[in-house]
Amino acid sequence: MDWSTHYPAFVCPDQDMEAGQPRRMSKQVEIADVGCGFGGLLIALSPLFPDTLMIGMELRTQVLSYVTNRILALRSQHQPQPQSQTQQPSTDPSSLPSPSPPSSSFPPGPLQNISALRTNTMKHLPNYFHRHQLSHLFLCFPDPHFKARKHKARIVSAQLNAEYAFVVRPGGCVYTITDVEELAGWIVGHFSGRKVDGEEEGDDGEETVGGNGADKTKGVEELWERVSEQDLQSDPCVEVMREETEEGKKVSRHGGRKFVSVWRRREDPPWPDEVC
């Protein structure tokens, strides 16, 4: 994966260009916004973690091209020196301006640390991040997939929560927000392993990995713990997620409710042979 076109300000200086080899980066992506939409969350988070690379992942081609253009336009607006004549917004990441030599003006300019790419995250998450790479993973206002038969397409499930646990490091968090109460219950249920009121049994996806009723074995929920309400108060990400995303603003306008739950990645459990 070549990240240099996404974050030109974070390319390592003094590299020989090797044919076919992506340029080395001084940082790796640590924050991912799955289903980033129009990028409101990334743009608001960018100044909070100016030295952390963030990536938005979006399935819809048109939305992706919008958010890419938006980020490039904002970057050139915030360019301190008027050297922006080469910075034409472009939809195709490969035709982005070639990485400028890391400027003497460190830290990099605003919004250099955010970018977006088009992918189906449900399928290809492990293609972008290695084990325990991420500190924050955002799932903001995901498609509720109301129909029971579509529940398998929901972005939170026992199966996918195991994949999130692979890319999120212990201590890192998955942030979720939705305006659909039933989906909020679903999310809590699938991260905590507890059955939630209103969740119908027998639906597709109702099972929790490893857990089945009286069965004592723990499932994927042993990899996650819910972050307390108190800790959420002091976490600026939560406020951004509530107020700065496009969907968040829309729900506010409609007077709807927002349900937040944040899940901290625990350490991997010991192997059974380590316990005895």
Binding site: A158, V209, G219, E222, L223, P272
Partner: peptide, 11 residues
């Protein structure tokens, strides 16, 4: 019973 712990992917 720990199949939810992913060791890695072979890509």
């Amino acid at each position: 019973p720990q199949a939810h712990v992913i060791k890695n992917y072979c890509l």
